[in-house]
Nucleic acid binder design. Sequence first.
DNA 1: GTAAGTAATTACCAATTGGTTACTAGTTAC
DNA 2: GTAACTAGTAACCAATTGGTAATTACTTAC
Lengths: 126, 126
Amino acid sequence: MNEANSCPMDPLLQRITGRWTTYILWLLANEGPLRFGALMALMPKISAKVLTDRLRTLERNGIVLRTQKPTIPPEVSYELTPHGHDLETALHSLHRVALKWHELGWVEDEGFPDAAVTLKDKVLAD
Amino acid sequence: MNEANSCPMDPLLQRITGRWTTYILWLLANEGPLRFGALMALMPKISAKVLTDRLRTLERNGIVLRTQKPTIPPEVSYELTPHGHDLETALHSLHRVALKWHELGWVEDEGFPDAAVTLKDKVLAD
DNA sequence: GTAAGTAATTACCAATTGGTTACTAGTTAC
DNA sequence: GTAACTAGTAACCAATTGGTAATTACTTAC
């Protein structure tokens, strides 16, 4: 587990992390199956192109299942596969951290309000 | 928590996920403080430029602490801040999934060997 | 007859990201 | 005297990513 080559964490992270990817997984884990349009509505800043790309990749990886009714207009929904459900514990754990940090007033690229204590470099005397 | 605006998951994920970022956090969580060179050795494919960038961002966000001895040659090491330690439970949970999927033979962009069951689109009759 | 609704895909362009090479500093070992 | 050691930084270029607008298909409502 000490060499990147043999550590299974790296390939996993490459596929489930990244802009939007983990958030999509969290939404599916937390809310259950969602239609394409519902996912778009839950992520106002994402474009259809990127959402499609992320869902296709997750599908290829066996993490998300796509279900379509070939009607017009089409109705397509997405849910976690049985394997995808393996991620739920970790996602809920991350969510707990998110809530905690939110309460603490954590801000992106500014850190925590108590930053004076934790943010600065430590410089050890020579 | 249903609107992306108000959901604290999105800002958290934006800062701790992404190529290499989560893996760096996992290494620091799992192995303790590590020097720059040790991190490079554990990630043969990362470049110094990218590693520096990821560490700087994590530092700005109060998740990683940088400690330097101003000697020559310099000695710099990185560790999780107290807040950074909040992520340990989630990271270990992800690691458990990584081990399980690895055992199941999961392959990036090919999914699981039992893909026939989970990978294909479901098409519901009209 | 015309517009709306859904889940995309395509093409094109702009922005962001990442790779590579060279360079730095002061001490120690050869 | 010269090379190695460490943790970067800067400059430049190539590759990847993402945004936007246009388009599709058929049905239903106005």
